[in-house]
Amino acid sequence: MADLPSGFWSGWIIVLTLVSLAGVAWLSISIYFSKDAETQADHEPVWDTDLKEGNNAPPMWWFWMLFAAMIFSLIYLMFFPGLGSYSGLLNWSQGSRVADSYANYEATFADSRQVISDASLEELQNDLDLMATAERIFTRECSPCHGPDGRGQAAMFPNLHDIDWQWGGTPEQIEQSIRQGRNAIMISWQQMLGNDLDAVTEYVSLLSEGNNQSHAGKAGYDQNCVVCHGPTGDGNQLLGAPRLNDDTWLYGGDIDSIRMSLTNGRFGVMPAFDQRLDDVQIKLLVALLAR
């Protein structure tokens, strides 16, 4: 993956770099150690027949600084990539540095990660330190949507600490929610329900109270909504269809919000974290949420 220059341009870089270095070396050495350094005056430009600038020799420590810099460049160019396609004695690259960091990380944390992999969810849940770690992961990855304490926000991102699970609250189901993400699909019912929309809206808002058998919206509900939300509004975790007969609402339980859900449809998206988090991190999150 080394992206070093090759062919003609490699030679071009090597020659220019080394020639410049040699040029600077020659220039500084010849100025500081020239045999006729004492007769500096002879080398001074003379303007208008007798006007001289009166140059002083630069101080010696300047030379030593320059000299040290040149030695440093040579050593640097020997060990690190810099001379065209030559990758240096250390074979260092930015990509290999990341790989090394990860190898180092694996080596340092392999044991504690193994402990987490082997532990049961209960053991993890009882370990306050690990739960604090899980909360940090949650804050970083999940809180922009689910809120800082995971209690949901913006009438769009669900509370993860209640007993009401849209997609299921078993560890396996939670893990799937995190790994694969969730795409809820409920289309708009405006067309289908037509004039019944208001009646069905009201019926839904009354589902939690039972005793609504003679309601005008029941027919519309039974015809269109039962497949997903169930005859009594219990919902269906396989489809992510939420329970409608309780007080917990994702998008709001007042008449206006329910009407909005039916008019516009709802398409909640939970992104997949399979790629962003590793197995141990996901396990910790599952333990945190399944508490």
């Binding site: 769009m156 998206v269 992104p271 962003r276």
Partner: peptide, 19 residues
């Protein structure tokens, strides 16, 4: 792909409502 379109919409209109 890190966030949903809906999140971006809310966040751009009023970042404080989600963060």
């Amino acid at each position: 792909g890190k966030f949903s379109d809906d999140w971006h919409r809310i966040h751009l209109i009023d970042p404080r409502s989600v963060v």
